[in-house]
Design a protein around this nucleic acid. Structure first.
Lengths: 162, 162
DNA sequence: AATGATGCGTTATGAGATAACATAACGAGT
DNA sequence: ACTCGTTATGTTATCTCATAACGCATCATT
């Protein structure tokens, strides 16, 4: 995406978790895994941690580079497998139009995710596409819609003001 | 996308143009370019032709491979530049979740494109997202939405029946 | 013709993702 | 505790997707 060279704003919508808040989020994820007999293994947990710490959408190779505790990168499959797991459980989402990943900011698992993406600062905000059911009606006749990818672009409030 | 191993359907929604119908479509494209002082150059025209001939979403490297008249592939930038042009003029759309391209099947230029994609046969059907304006309201507070990427997945009528 | 803008051809490389295979960890049943 | 099937990981290599950078060609205007 072209962010425009004249944007001086920071990613600020989701500042990224740290300290006890981050720890809590990870514990919550552990619990949700335990409840469904899924395993939040070390690499999965690490990738989730990196996503939660981040201020905005993360590229897979950013995660790969940041994976190791002392600067050693991960191997690509390690991170891609973890991302696949996190998406499956609803802990993370892929933003197709950015080739990037974000942690889920909403509670419900299995929900349909939708995003607004600021073309200026790159922030991505998740929202609940309540109208997904409307979509099924709006879609061409006869299609049985099962999932929806919805990514809207525009300007976040800060970038409109600035 | 996982199309499922058990689908025996063909891409049938848009059979691909040929002969006089194809020629007409290209002439129409020429006219629309001329009207806005844009140039439908040879590589651009060739890529549009390949898209119009196709039965379904085409990958960039499929187009690259098919570009030459006698089996010689194009160089990647040739095709990517043509696709960029065709998208800009509304003659083609990129489907993000497939990394693939389709010719525009609707008349209006500059419209917001939306797609339903059959998870079984891979067909992609374009439709007009009339509710895009509703989206602006549904989006998180304060975002000024400028464009929307909407890609729904499900089963086309033929694949539901079969 | 000179000029400036746009587009093309070419080489090379960057960015994103996965196939394939071997090894290791878990967990249910005995 | 053992063994067996399953699930997950480590590793290497490769595949797919896309663009940077450069020089030349083409076209419209002067």
């Amino acid at each position: 995406m072209d962010m425009g060279a004249d944007c001086h704003h920071e990613d600020g919508v989701h500042p990224g978790l740290a300290g006890p808040v981050l720890a809590d989020a990870l514990v919550l994820a552990e619990r949700r895994c335990a409840a469904t007999q899924e395993r939040l293994t070390a690499p999965r947990r690490r990738v989730l941690e990196l996503l939660l710490e981040s201020d905005g959408p993360q590229k897979a190779y950013d995660l790969i580079a940041a994976f190791g505790a002392h600067g050693e990168p991960a191997k690509p499959p390690t991170v891609y497998r973890a991302l696949e797991f996190l998406e499956r459980l609803g802990f993370a989402h892929r933003i197709e139009s950015l080739n990037a990943y974000v942690p889920c900011r909403l509670d419900g698992q299995g929900h349909r995710a939708a995003f607004v993406i600021c073309e200026c600062c790159g922030a991505a905000e998740e929202f609940e596409p309540d109208f997904a059911t409307q979509l099924a009606a709006a879609a061409p006749s006869g299609y049985a819609v099962r999932s929806v990818t919805l990514e809207a672009r525009g300007l976040c409030p800060a970038c409109q003001a600035g």
